[in-house]
Nucleic acid binder design. Structure first.
Lengths: 268, 268
DNA sequence: CGGCGACTTGAAACGTGTCAATTAGCGTGG
DNA sequence: CCACGCTAATTGACACGTTTCAAGTCGCCG
């Protein structure tokens, strides 16, 4: 996939009124064609809020926590993050959003986002009218199925993150984050080649996504580098030793349950 | 609420064929009457799988990870836990299920649970036919709304847990778990009085729910006890100093983001 | 050139895990 | 009824992972 359709800079220069038909995220995530009948794109275009293709600079907010939203944003290009903020300044990234990702399926059914969406790179996104997007769900079963499977994936991702944060070491978490993003980029044809990808996350993003500190992330990544697992500089990342990285992703077992019977539980 | 309708032992002796009309969880969670029109209970009874009210002993599994499930279980009485298992024996509890809780809304839309459900106490549950429960959603808007808000709550809970595990200390997490359960029991009228409740979790459950070890949980709880915050023995817990406990629930701030601009982010 | 954000590195403190030994609690069967 | 065996909880010593604090480098942009 040529870089012109990638996630940085260039895309934002496209004529914003062209719409989904030529959207670079056309084939990704919720917008993906294979799952949807051809007619849906036309209908989608109908529930699209006119004049609502926005461009946001890196590090700005796309969705505010307290606002009510009658519209559902979808990422067209760029990376963003779903973030929970604590009053004392602590932050936790719930998910990294890539082109084609719907910004929280929950917004489809209620106007209250429980979190903030922040642009990581410059981001282009479009917004859709909730009411009408929602009623489209009931007209088009294929679209409903697409949304549902998207929701199930969202949930599975949240559950995975819970396990990672609760039961895995920092090293494991970072390795898994990298592998997971590589996987998602690969599925979207957004790898530069088999092993290299644009990777705009700063170390503090990785820290907020893995529940670690930036300083510790720096240490682990340096170690990965020294071990020849990855190359990571200038917003781009190369997987040098995929198998090694995978091994880091679930090594360092820590057994935590003091109840031995748990490890040989009889069936119900 | 008399103990006979509580969650331990006695309920299992009720005639199991009586059904939702007299279900002790009748007013909780997804089964809650205030949200649903009167006719729904009758319709629910219709999609209930005959002969499918089960009783499971504590520590047994209700749902297995690999199985396909054409039926959706709902907890009638007792406590259960949604659990992810790692190959090396590590465990993470995703949520604690109380009477009236639907066992993972996700099962409504797909047969593949991505986790295990384990009984904490003896548990009574009924199962409903997925196909028909699902089609009921489209007939009865009030039921759909009930399910949707349940789903949103489930998601909000997962997000909260992610933040807790990623960014809060063990002490905070344990305090929050206790407060959260007290809240949920209170909403269901399942407190023995304003401050005391049946609390069947073992320390290893708390450990698996908070991502800590049982030994460490023991230490923190002992400290809570010494500080006069709670009394906790014989499967029952009393809140002695609610305010103090609340303070523990978000004290011990740890700032983790080295990027100062994050703490004064401009709006988009 | 200066300034600022991103990253690196080291030393020390702290939270949490691990291991082990001991006690308390509970259900079962003699 | 007590004794036995198993599970649950407590406690202490120690190890390790992670944070905190601090100083310093690098690169980019105005």
């Amino acid at each position: 996939m040529p870089t012109v359709l990638g996630f940085r800079g260039v895309v934002a220069n496209l004529n914003l009124s062209i719409g989904c038909a030529v959207c670079p995220a056309r084939e990704y995530g919720i917008c993906s064609a294979p799952q949807l009948g051809a007619g849906v794109v036309a209908e989608l275009e109908r529930v699209f809020v006119p004049q609502s293709t926005f461009t946001t600079k890196a590090r700005r907010l796309i969705v505010h926590e307290q606002d009510f939203h009658d519209a559902v944003p979808i990422i067209c290009s760029g990376w963003a993050a779903t973030i929970k903020l604590l009053p004392d300044g602590r932050r936790q990234i719930l998910s990294i959003l890539l082109p084609g990702d719907i910004v929280s399926t929950g917004l489809l059914f209620g106007p209250r986002p429980q979190h903030v969406i922040e642009a990581i790179t410059d981001v282009r996104y479009r917004t859709f009218k909730r009411r009408e997007l929602k009623s489209l769900l009931f007209k088009r079963t294929d679209f409903l199925d697409s949304i549902l499977s998207n929701w199930l994936a969202e949930q599975a991702h949240a559950d995975r993150l819970i396990v990672d944060l609760g039961r895995r070491s920092g090293e494991e978490r970072i390795a898994r984050l990298i592998l997971n993003l590589a996987q998602r980029l690969y599925e979207r044809d957004m790898m530069r080649d088999v092993t290299a990808m644009d990777f705009p996350l700063r170390q503090h993003h990785i820290a907020d996504a893995t529940g670690l500190t930036q300083v510790h992330v720096s240490g682990v990544i340096s170690e990965f580098r020294r071990a020849g697992l990855i190359e990571f500089r200038q917003r781009s990342l190369t997987l040098l030793d995929l198998e090694g990285l995978r091994r880091r992703a679930n090594l360092h077992a820590r057994r935590t349950c003091a109840n031995p019977s748990f490890y040989a539980m009889p069936a119900a």
